[in-house]
Amino acid sequence: MPDIFERIRQDHDAARQLVDEIESTTERAGKKRDELFETFKIELWAHNRVEEATFYARLESKGEDEESLEAKNEHHMLNSLIEELDTMPKDNVEWSQKFHAFAELLSHHMEEEEEEFFDLGRQVFSSSETEILGKEFDSRKDAVKSAIAPVE
């Protein structure tokens, strides 16, 4: 079973792949772009919420409030941009440019987590805590995704 660091990195890698797929679409592929973005949006919202409830909440419990608050603020900014992108028509250059700017912010955030926050987590969590957090992350993410997925 992957620990919390592996689970977060797996989600980051999946997000990077979806970003690449979305950015490779053209304005003429509005329907395909919309489908990819819908999947991406749900995955990212679920990831952010569960990461805050598991990884960042545990960092806070260990006295690492400053780092946790920084990451939560970045999540808030990313989620705001996702909501804005979600309301825009996806078959135009404006959407493409805004998504690209969003993707750059997301990439910076993920790199910072993987390079700085993971190191901090490894300093303050025991190996058994990281395994428990990984399991908790998985179970909560499945529940959140089910709760926020559109009803068909």
Rank of each mutant, 00 (worst) to 15 (best):
E6F: 04
R33G: 07
L69K: 12
I82D: 05
E94D: 13
N73E: 12
K141M: 09
H108V: 04
H100R: 14
E66K: 11
E104I: 08
F55Q: 06
A103C: 07
M77A: 15
E116R: 10
F102S: 06
S107T: 12
K31G: 05
D91S: 14
L44C: 05
F40W: 11
L44H: 05
S146Y: 00
F99E: 05
R33W: 00
I82V: 15
T39M: 11
H108C: 03
Q97F: 08
F118K: 08
K135Y: 02
E114M: 02
R122H: 09
S146E: 14
L120S: 07
T39R: 15
F125G: 06
F117W: 03
E27H: 02
L78G: 11
L120Y: 02
H47A: 04
Q97M: 13
E131L: 13
A46M: 06
L85I: 11
S139E: 14
E38T: 15
N73M: 10
E111D: 14
K62L: 10
E136N: 13
E35P: 01
R7K: 15
F118C: 08
L105V: 04
E83K: 13
H100E: 10
W45T: 12
R33D: 04
L44N: 06
E131T: 09
L69N: 11
T87R: 15
V19P: 01
S127C: 00
D34T: 14
F55M: 12
N73G: 13
E64V: 11
V124T: 04
E60D: 13
S61Y: 07
D34L: 08
R58E: 15
V124E: 05
V19Q: 03
K41V: 01
S68V: 01
M1A: 13
F117C: 04
K90P: 10
K90F: 07
Q123S: 15
E129A: 11
T130L: 10
L69I: 02
F102G: 05
D34M: 08
T54S: 13
Y56H: 11
Q17Y: 04
E23V: 04
E38I: 05
A15Q: 07
Y56K: 08
V124H: 05
L105I: 09
D119N: 10
A143S: 12
E21D: 14
K32G: 01
I132P: 00
F117M: 14
E112H: 12
A71Q: 03
E52V: 03
M110W: 00
T130H: 02
K141S: 02
T39K: 15
E74R: 08
N48I: 04
E35C: 06
R9H: 08
S80I: 06
D65W: 04
R9I: 01
N73H: 12
A101D: 12
S80N: 13
E84C: 09
K62P: 02
E104N: 11
A14F: 00
R28K: 15
W45C: 08
A71K: 00
E131F: 03
P2L: 11
A147Y: 02
E113A: 03
E23R: 14
L18Y: 08
T25N: 10
M77F: 06
R28Y: 09
L36C: 09
F40K: 11
M88A: 12
T39E: 15
